[in-house]
Amino acid sequence: MIKVNGLYHSYSKDENFAVKNVNFEISKGEVFGFLGPSGAGKSTTQGVLTGLLPIQKGEVEVVGYDIRHPKREMFNKIGVSFEQSNVYGKLTALENLEFYRKLFDVETMNSMDLLKWVGLDHVANKKAGEFSKGMKHRLTFIRSMLNNPELWFLDEPTTGLDPAIASQIKDIVKEKNKQGTTVFLTTHNMYVADELCHRVAFIIDGEIKLIDSPRNLKLQHGEKFVVVEHLENDVLKKEQLSLIIDQDKARLNEIISTGKIEMMHTKEATLEEIFIKVTGRGLE
C-alpha cells in the first residue's frame, strides 16, 4: 500500500532535514503506527505521503501511485484525518460532509450514517462553529471516511478526546481495518498504538530507529517476570518470580495451586518504556 525508500524532507530546503533516510513499507490491511514525540517528523512524513508536502528526495509510492507524479484520482482511494480539526464553522455538520462528499468521484458513505457512528446525528443541523473541540475532531475524523478509503491516514485521532469517545474512535478504526482498510496512524499515544497497530515505527529527530510489532517489541525488550500478590496465612504477600528459573517456576505453580492469588501480572514492558530504552527519549 505504501513504499517509502530514502525519504528526506527539509522545510528550509537545505541540509537541515525534518525527516532523513526514512524507509518502510506497509502492506494491504495493516495498521501501521508512526510513534514519536512532537517534532520527530511524523506529520512531515504523513504530509509527503498525502501530497500536502512536495517530495524533495527519495521514492514514495502510495496506493500504487508514484508520489513524484501524483494524480488527483489517487485521492479517491485515500482518506486523511487531520490532527487539528479543519471544518467550515459556518456550515452545519451535515453540510460539511455533503460538501466534501461531492468532491469525490467514487461512491461515498451516507453522511447521516457517519454522524450516527460518532454520536453527532443529533447535532447534524447545527453549525460546526458552535461545536466543542471534541465534536469538531469527530467531524474531521468521519469526513476522512466519506470515500471509503483503501488507505486511511489518521493523525493523532484520539488526542484531546474524552476516554469514551476515544474508545469509540478506536472501535471504528478496528472495524474499518477488519473490512480491509489499511491504516497509517500517526501518534505519540503509546496506548493507542499498542491497541491498534500491527506494527509500529519509532521515529525521532526525523529518523526511524526501529520497526516491529508491539508484541515482538515487548518480547524482546520486556522482562520475563511475573508479579504475584497472594494471601499466605491471611497475610498479603507480593513476590516477583522469574519465568526462566526453575525454582521460581515451581514457586509460581505452588502459589497458583493454593488458590489464594489476589493479583498477578506479567512484567512486560510498555511501548513507552521500549521507546525510551531504544531512543533514549520520552514520547511527550
Binding site: 500536502l52 489517487m74 485521492f75 482518506g79 486523511v80 479543519n86 466534501y100 469526513r143
Partner: peptide, 18 residues
C-alpha cells in the same frame, strides 16, 4: 480567508479536486 482561517484548503487538497 475563511478557508485559510479554518485550514480547510488542506482538506480539499486531499480530495480529487484539481
Amino acid at each position: 480567508v475563511e478557508e485559510k482561517m479554518s485550514n480547510t484548503i488542506s482538506a480539499i487538497n486531499v480530495t480529487p479536486t484539481k
